[in-house]
Computed example of a mutant assay.
Amino acid sequence: MTALAVTGSPLWYASRASGTLAVLLLTTTVVLGIASGNRSVPRRMGRFEIGLLHRNLALLTSAFLAVHVVTAVFDPFTSLGWTVAVVPFVAFYRPLWLGLGAAGLDLLLAVLITSVLRQHLGARRWKAVHWFTYAVWPLALFHGVGSGTDIQLPLQLWLYAGCLGTVVGAVWWRLVRAGPGRVSVRIVAAVVTTAVPVVLTMLLATGPLQFR
């Protein structure tokens, strides 16, 4: 166990805990979104119930994300400031990993704002922006594994591994059960889904897991 994991401030603990919960909830939201788009969803649950659950999980994710950002900004150990939270790659502390988190936050804010304005934007424009949710998830995962030294804790590492395996499994399940058409979209999804765990493993081996 790292020294920081033992001696971190209460704000650090709150930031890491809320960040981890946000990643877990975002993973569940993404998996539910992937599964609900398939015709093989459970018949006992109607589309209204699935849509309501999906929306509530998204709101809960946003709430924990807000706690994560606020506690990280006010944590005296990092002294990040609000600019770092919303402008990618300007931090002096782990700029890559914090920049990925800021980029994910910006995309999620775009999704949330357009969801509020959905009736004014129209379903087509809203859906186009809503696709950014699938980009938010890998950004959040990479940010989580690279921005905190608690990634060296076995439980934390297994939690992120579980999130990764769940989303990858859901995507491949969707690809296998997909009907004909949109071959290019399926190829891109397959390539990206395969690349994410490979790149993440390489970065972990050469970066965060080497910190002491």
Rank of each mutant, 00 (worst) to 15 (best):
R177Q: 10
Y160I: 09
A58H: 00
A140K: 04
G179Y: 00
V111Y: 00
V136F: 04
A66Q: 06
F77D: 09
R55E: 04
V168W: 08
R43E: 13
H120A: 15
L21Y: 05
F92A: 15
L52Y: 06
Y160Q: 09
A35W: 11
I113A: 14
Q152G: 09
G181D: 02
L4E: 11
G81E: 02
V196N: 03
G179T: 01
V183G: 02
L108Q: 04
L98Q: 07
L4Y: 07
Q210S: 10
L59H: 12
L175K: 00
C163W: 02
V168T: 15
A195S: 11
L57Q: 05
L141M: 12
A91Y: 00
P76Q: 04
Q210V: 15
T194L: 15
Y93L: 11
S147A: 14
R16K: 06
F77M: 07
V23D: 05
L21Q: 01
F64S: 08
V198L: 15
N56D: 09
W82E: 05
R182K: 13
L204M: 15
Y13V: 15
Y160F: 12
I187S: 07
W12T: 03
A35S: 10
I187D: 03
V168I: 15
G99P: 02
P208R: 08
V168S: 12
L98A: 04
L117M: 12
A17L: 13
R125T: 07
V31K: 10
A161D: 07
L159Y: 02
T29F: 06
Q152H: 10
A63K: 03
M202Q: 12
F132D: 05
T193Y: 07
T28H: 08
Y93A: 09
L60Q: 05
E49K: 12
V198W: 06
A140W: 00
P180F: 04
H120F: 12
T27D: 12
Y160M: 11
A189T: 05
V6E: 14
G81P: 02
H143D: 10
L26M: 14
T29R: 06
L26Y: 05
E49Y: 02
F142I: 11
G104K: 01
R125F: 00
I50V: 15
A91N: 03
G122I: 01
